[in-house]
């Protein structure tokens, strides 16, 4: 078990994190820029000190200011892959990978395993972003660390190679026996690489769960936007949720009290005339904007309740910005849960 209860001041804001991880899961830390994701990794690696709290890995106390315990980075079994890899520019690829291990043959084994055998004698300046990232991974893995930390592993990889690098990364993360924590701002990357997602916002963990949990039960506007869901926060009474601005949305539940609700944009239907049938949520709205993407068109509708509808390109042809439309959402599509 890895537990990190850490409090630290950094760059003018306070990081206050409770994080646990097991060896049978890959954890992704996501959050907006400046949320403290990289700071968290630096604390785990021992590069920055913890002011209060404790870091314990497999029963070993790595850091505990109250007991004056602080293992230096070189005394921790970590593999740290910083943003953009940060290879040592004056060393060859093999020398980079061999830096942390006793035998150069070990380096060759790992480079072969990551498909980099042709680059053994190359200089870091000759590598692409993706190659550098994989070399940095090999450099960390060669020490078989108890804790593997990756900071934005795909950010410096160009789009053309991203899928291939992600595939290798995914395999390596899967095959690594220790704790694995990666940081990313990209939910797709998190979903592709990790089993569990920890949302960090303004130095605090705001949500912690699987990607499915996050998608169906977002607990903040940030997460809702991240997973592309409509998100509401209000007071429920018998399943009917009243929003702070007076809007009302009806769910199929019988929830009472402080409540959150999510609606998938594809569950929002738009009509030119008042729909027939029995949807519980129907109102006349106003099209504020229309944003086409590759597969769908996202239509932002204001009205009794502001939300986003996802319609097909064919369906969207009937609407234009500024039009009035009828909005309908089935109560069964409104997922309500306690706040």
């Amino acid at each position: 078990m890895l537990t990190c209860h850490a409090s630290a001041a950094r760059n003018g804001f306070r990081l206050e994190v409770d994080l646990e991880a097991a060896t049978d899961e890959i954890v992704a830390v996501v959050g907006p820029n400046g949320a403290g994701k990289s700071s968290l990794l630096r604390i785990l690696a021992g590069l920055d000190p913890v002011e209060a709290g404790q870091i314990v890995v497999d029963g070993d106390v790595w850091e505990d200011p109250a007991a004056s315990i602080r293992r230096l980075p070189e005394e921790r079994s970590v593999g740290y892959v910083p943003q953009a890899g940060l290879l040592f520019p004056h060393l060859s690829v093999r020398e980079n990978v061999a830096f942390g291990c006793a035998e150069e043959e070990e380096a060759d084994v790992w480079l072969g395993r990551l498909g980099l055998e042709d680059l053994i004698d190359a200089r870091p300046s000759e590598l692409s972003g993706g190659q550098a990232q994989l070399v940095a991974l090999a450099r960390a893995q060669v020490r078989r660390p108890a804790l593997l930390l990756l900071d934005e592993p795909l950010a410096s990889v160009d789009a053309a190679n991203r899928a291939a690098v992600r595939r290798v990364l995914r395999r390596e993360l899967h095959d690594s026996p220790g704790y694995r924590i990666l940081v990313t701002h990209d939910p797709l990357e998190a979903a592709a690489l990790a089993d569990r997602i920890v949302v960090l916002d303004n130095g605090r963990v705001t949500q912690d769960g699987t990607i499915d949990d996050l998608r169906t039960h977002p607990r903040s506007t940030y997460v809702a936007e991240l997973v592309g869901m409509n998100f509401f926060s209000g007071e429920a009474s018998g399943g009917t949720i009243t929003l702070p601005d007076g809007g009302v949305i009806v769910s199929a539940s019988t929830l009472n009290g402080a409540a959150l609700a999510s609606v998938h944009p594809r569950a929002v239907s738009l009509y030119l005339s008042r729909p027939t049938g029995s949807p519980r949520n129907v109102w006349l709205g106003h099209i504020a904007s229309i944003e086409p993407s590759l597969e769908q068109v996202r239509v932002h509708v204001t009205g009794q309740v502001d939300l986003v509808a996802e319609v097909t390109h064919g369906g969207a042809a009937a609407f234009s910005e500024g039009d009035d439309v009828w909005v309908a959402v089935k109560a069964s599509e409104v997922l309500a849960y306690p706040r």
Binding site: P73, E74, R76
Partner: peptide, 15 residues
């Protein structure tokens, strides 16, 4: 000298 490189070296066990 980029201090980040020295930090990486530290995580690789270099004193």
């Amino acid at each position: 000298v980029d201090r980040n490189l020295e930090e990486v070296a530290a995580t690789l066990g270099a004193g």
